[in-house]
C-alpha cells in the first residue's frame, strides 16, 4: 500500500459522501445513489483515460500494449479527467433520470474538495506539483533532496478553498440555495490554468505546456461558450474564449523567457510582471463571464 492509493480512496469516499449529504433534503435517495455511482465511476475512468492518453509515449512507447490503460498501478490519474468525467457522467445521469438540472449544482463543492485533496496528495505522496526554487517564506516552500521549491500544490488547494468560500458567499448574498456547478467549473479552470503555469515538474507535458493547464482552460472556455448561447450572444462567447486563449498563450511564451519585458528596469522582476498581467487577464475574463451570466439569467427570467 502507499499514501497515494489510500489518499485516492479516501478522496473518492469523502466526495461521494459530501454529494449524498448535500443532496439528501431534496432529491430522492434512489436518484442520488445512482447519480453518485455514475459520477464516481465516470470520474475514476476518465481520470485514468486522460492520464493514459497524456502519457502515450510512456505507456504505448515502452509497453506496446493498449491494455496498459488497465494497469492501474503504473502511472496515475489526472485530476482534470476526474472533474470532467464526474461532471459529465452526473449530467448524463440527471438527463436520464429527468432530474432537475439544479441537482447537478450539488456536485460543485465536492469537486472543489476533490481537486484540493488531489493536489495536496500529488505533492505529499508522489512528489509532483512543485515550482521554481524558493527558500522563504517557509510556509510556501517545500524542501526535499533538491532544496526548497515553491509549493504549487498548496497554492492550488488554497485557490480551490477560496473559490468555494467566494461562491458560498455569493450564494448567500443572492439568496440562492445552490452553488452553481457552471460557475465552479469556470473558476476552477482559470485558477488551475494560472497555478499550473507556476509548475516546474514535467508531469503530463506537451513541449513546455502542461496538458492539464490546456484542458482546464478549455473547460473554462466551454462554460463561457455555453453561457454565451444562453445569453443569446454565442459569437461574443466564442470570440472572448479565443481572445483569452491568445492572451494565455502569449503569457506562457513570456513566462518561458521567449518574450522580454518591455522596460529594462523590470527585467529583474519579469516573472512578477508577467504573473501580474496573467492575473489581470483572468480577472477581466471572469468579470466578462459573470456579466454574461447575469444577462443569461435575465433572459431566462
Amino acid at each position: 500500500m502507499n499514501l497515494y492509493s489510500i489518499g485516492l480512496a479516501v478522496s473518492i469516499m469523502v466526495c461521494v459522501a459530501a454529494f449524498i449529504l448535500l443532496n439528501r433534503p431534496r432529491t430522492a435517495m434512489s436518484s442520488v445513489l445512482l447519480i453518485s455511482g455514475f459520477s464516481a465511476l465516470g470520474g475514476l475512468l476518465c481520470a485514468r483515460l486522460v492520464y493514459w492518453f497524456g502519457a502515450l509515449d510512456f505507456f504505448i512507447g515502452r509497453t506496446h500494449n493498449v491494455l496498459s490503460f488497465f494497469w492501474w498501478t503504473d502511472g496515475g490519474f489526472s485530476l482534470f479527467g476526474a472533474v470532467a468525467g464526474a461532471a459529465g457522467c452526473a449530467w448524463l445521469a440527471c438527463r436520464w433520470l429527468k432530474e432537475d438540472k439544479r441537482t447537478l449544482d450539488l456536485l460543485a463543492l465536492p469537486l472543489l474538495l476533490l481537486v484540493a485533496e488531489g493536489r495536496l496528495l500529488e505533492w505529499t505522496a508522489v512528489g509532483m506539483d512543485f515550482g521554481g526554487a524558493l527558500e522563504s517564506p517557509a510556509w510556501l516552500a517545500v524542501s526535499g533532496e533538491y532544496g526548497g521549491r515553491l509549493n504549487v500544490a498548496l497554492i492550488e488547494a488554497l485557490m480551490m478553498i477560496a473559490v468555494a468560500v467566494g461562491l458560498i458567499i455569493r450564494m448567500r448574498v443572492k439568496a440562492k440555495k445552490r452553488v452553481p456547478l457552471r460557475d465552479t467549473l469556470f473558476l476552477m479552470g482559470l485558477c488551475e490554468a494560472l497555478a499550473i503555469s507556476m509548475r516546474h515538474d514535467t508531469y503530463m507535458m506537451w513541449g513546455f505546456v502542461h496538458q492539464e493547464q490546456l484542458y482546464f482552460y478549455l473547460l473554462s472556455s466551454l462554460m463561457v461558450i455555453l453561457t454565451g448561447f444562453e445569453a443569446r450572444k454565442p459569437i461574443a462567447g466564442i470570440i472572448s474564449a479565443f481572445i483569452a486563449a491568445g492572451a494565455i498563450i502569449f503569457l506562457e511564451f513570456a513566462l518561458d523567457g521567449r518574450i522580454h519585458v518591455p522596460f529594462a528596469f523590470m527585467r529583474e522582476w519579469a516573472d512578477l510582471f508577467w504573473y501580474g498581467l496573467f492575473i489581470l487577464a483572468l480577472a477581466a475574463y471572469t468579470i466578462y463571464y459573470f456579466s454574461m451570466r447575469r444577462g443569461a439569467e435575465r433572459k431566462r427570467a
Binding site: 473518492i12 435517495m29 445513489l33 447519480i35 453518485s36 455511482g37 455514475f38 464516481a40
Partner: peptide, 13 residues
C-alpha cells in the same frame, strides 16, 4: 432499481 444500480456502481468504484 435505481438505488440498487447506484449502490452496485459505488461498490465497483
Amino acid at each position: 432499481r435505481h438505488a440498487v444500480t447506484g449502490i452496485l456502481l459505488l461498490a465497483l468504484v
